[in-house]
Design a protein around this nucleic acid. Structure first.
Lengths: 184, 184
DNA sequence: TCTGTTTGTCTTGACGTCAAGATAAATCTC
DNA sequence: GAGATTTATCTTGACGTCAAGACAAACAGA
């Protein structure tokens, strides 16, 4: 009897015509994701980061040497708008974790590079993040994990299409929510 | 080979020491949730609502007659702060879907009530919402659905504790994200 | 070469959220 | 009952996001 069960019960009384089985699934997934996001945020905070800045630094790290990407490429990979990208870069430049270099090939463009400090920080932060993630799924035994992963893959293929490009790129809503980093 | 696989592959090259199996699971769940949230937002928009206003109206509806709750109770159920609650109520009062009545028993308090218009709208919107949710899980066969639900329940119990109170109530981060309605 | 279009980045304005605190009413303690 | 505490709600200020558009540099066609 969890919180989702209580909500489903209320609907059964108020609108017995509704089939709430999908709601159970989706509701639980939303709640699980919220708990996980909260836990991961704590790990980020230990390194003076939030999900947004962690995501940017991690994207640069896992891109491989020379750990430099254009704001446009970063925004595409992280599925955020260019304005948001500018803002995130500004903050990380202020804290000295990345730097803006002029693109050698395009006078309009920049390359966002990890500084040595940024490199060192994100390297440690990623290690801690992976440990946090391991802890978050520890409650599941291997069979359950495999089943969960298979079901999620099935859904994801349905949403994104088998071998589509990188981003879902639909176009999110505006204010407040919609995302909280999508990957890493 | 989906987007999450590509990210995991990059980590394997850059940090082969990491066990990215949990990341796959969590990454897929985050992406699935984002796609679902986007689809549900579309349904809400068809009724002139967003996730926030839908959530409030639906909470009042499923609470049963007389479809009236205090802002404090609503905020607790929806796991948002009192300031956000004030804001959400203001908007729905402006559009005539709910009204503020003085509490008959507490001079400080109000009861937020569905107006007839709000009642009619949310009743139709919930029907459409449930249909959208059914469509979102249609890709899974009954076995997969059961396995997914079981795995999510297991995780949720781990996070919220077996029979705990209504809210997780931890205390979220501040700006931007953290939620996008949790239930309904 | 010159002009028009495309591309890369930043700026502006609006929105929804949160945290912290202000205000008013209710309740408790002596 | 009078003063202190708690509870219910709203207000303020800051933040991060998006959409739309401003601006500069690069490219393409005559």
């Amino acid at each position: 009897m969890d919180a989702v069960d209580r909500i489903v019960e209320q609907w059964a009384r108020q609108r017995p015509d509704l089939d709430t089985a999908p709601m159970e699934l989706i509701g639980r997934m939303a709640r699980v994701r919220n708990h996980m996001a909260r836990a991961m945020d704590q790990t980020f905070a230990e390194f003076g980061l939030n999900a947004a800045s962690f995501d940017l630094l991690a994207t640069l790290l896992r891109a491989g040497p020379p750990h430099a990407l254009s704001p446009t490429d970063l925004a595409a990979m992280m599925m955020i708008t260019s304005g948001t990208m500018t803002n995130r870069i500004d903050q990380l430049v202020k804290t000295g974790l990345v730097e803006r270099r002029k693109s050698p090939t395009d006078g309009r463009g920049f390359l966002i590079c990890l500084t040595p400090e940024g490199m060192a920080l994100i390297d440690r932060a990623v290690t801690a993040h992976v440990a946090t993630q391991a802890r978050l799924v520890a409650a599941l035994d291997p069979d359950q994990r495999a089943a969960l992963n298979a079901a999620l893959s099935g859904l994801l293929i349905g949403f994104e299409g088998e071998g589509a490009g990188d981003g879902a790129g639909d176009g999110a809503g505006k204010g407040g929510d919609a995302g909280e980093d999508t990957a890493t």
